[in-house]
Design a binder for these strands. Sequence first.
DNA 1: GGCCGCGCGATTGTCAACGATCAGCAGCAC
DNA 2: GTGCTGCTGATCGTTGACAATCGCGCGGCC
Lengths: 242, 242
Amino acid sequence: MTVTRPADTPQAQTHADRIFELVERAIVSGELPPGSRLGEEALAARFGVSRGPLREALRQLEGRGLVVRTAHAGARVVTLTRADLAEIYEIRANLEGLACRLAAARASEAELAALEALLDEHMRAAVLRADEAYPQERGVPDFHFALAAASKSRRLERLLCHDYYSLVRLFRHRTSHRAGHALRAFDDHRRIVQALRERDGEFAELLMRRHVQTARRELEAMDEVFAPGETVVPWPGVAAGD
Amino acid sequence: MTVTRPADTPQAQTHADRIFELVERAIVSGELPPGSRLGEEALAARFGVSRGPLREALRQLEGRGLVVRTAHAGARVVTLTRADLAEIYEIRANLEGLACRLAAARASEAELAALEALLDEHMRAAVLRADEAYPQERGVPDFHFALAAASKSRRLERLLCHDYYSLVRLFRHRTSHRAGHALRAFDDHRRIVQALRERDGEFAELLMRRHVQTARRELEAMDEVFAPGETVVPWPGVAAGD
DNA sequence: GGCCGCGCGATTGTCAACGATCAGCAGCAC
DNA sequence: GTGCTGCTGATCGTTGACAATCGCGCGGCC
């Protein structure tokens, strides 16, 4: 009983894992803006570790698409273009649609009830602060996360929540999220859950695809998502190489 | 102009990148069977590098889903279960379907012609050796690769050809690929290209989904894909944890 | 005056050694 | 005989230092 569960305690995490999460959070939150250089020594000093674990974390972040590395030239935070947004949301629409289709067939009654309770909670939160965005990372779990879990496909869930959500948040982190968007999104979610209730996978998939595509169009409409100032090219030098 | 292109010469590759590819190839080819332990020192000695670059390569492989790492316990080649096969092929069917839909709308005439030429070449190769499998990694480029490229979505292409194809080959590497499968697959491919020619994205998507799902069912039918002997559980100890 | 080559600084890639942690086993108490 | 405890061997995680490479500014040359 004196054994501390290594899977639960953050102590069991190795330094590289912790640095990975910290840098990921810094990138997604905008603290490390797109295109900014990630010097190894500087980052290592900032997080109080050596360059070894940091390099491993950087490799992992590269695999997740959050940083781009060029040999002997260092790592930078990825700079996403309009084409990237279109591609990411196209893929995400399909994948989340698949999650809906699977969830309609596999979700348990308890999971459906949990989804509905989640919607109720979101509505209450949205009513409380109408000017605020749709609740995210405010302690209240995300709708898309719960839905991915209900698909009962661990790989799909990991792909959606672990790999792609960071990229999506990279786009959303500076959007002001006017209230109209939150209400429309909430309505979409409600309709999707209803389709899930009726076990109509095809319809749920269609609704989810349209929901994601709507979000894409909304994001594409605002320019401030991409460039902080007016720099269209990520950084001078290698741009169209790969 | 005297500059040797660093992106083309293999010299520009760092050790970690090279080790990554080598270990990936060893895993996919079955040289490192599923569940086998990947001791750092042994691998480092085998490839003639230190443990530093090797650890980076292992991290990258973990991110790609080819190895599983547990802190302080080492890395092992991933052992894919029947559930994994179902999940992977379900996702792949959707993604390749998406690639078809995009390719139907975006592929240039030259790309379509190249796809048809590829099919001709495949047919000739299949006719030459009817007992052989569908031509793969024999110098002749893969059909699915060309199609992913034709989708004009770099991220989708990377996801399909770079991330998921290794997993698929992990399943296929020991299947004997009887001739019937090759012929049916070739016929599927021909029909898909025809739909692409007619710019019928919906139909091409449907065909591709069924094509992948058929491959899935065929793989599920043969037991030798999963366990080399009769060990159903990957390795004793932690099994259902994650 | 403009362009080319070149050395220097900074940064990355790599290595070998140190401390930390876990699995397995011998030994002892019950 | 059985269960626990402490050790030991091996392996992983981490560190600091060394070598290789690239970008950049200076000087020389056309």
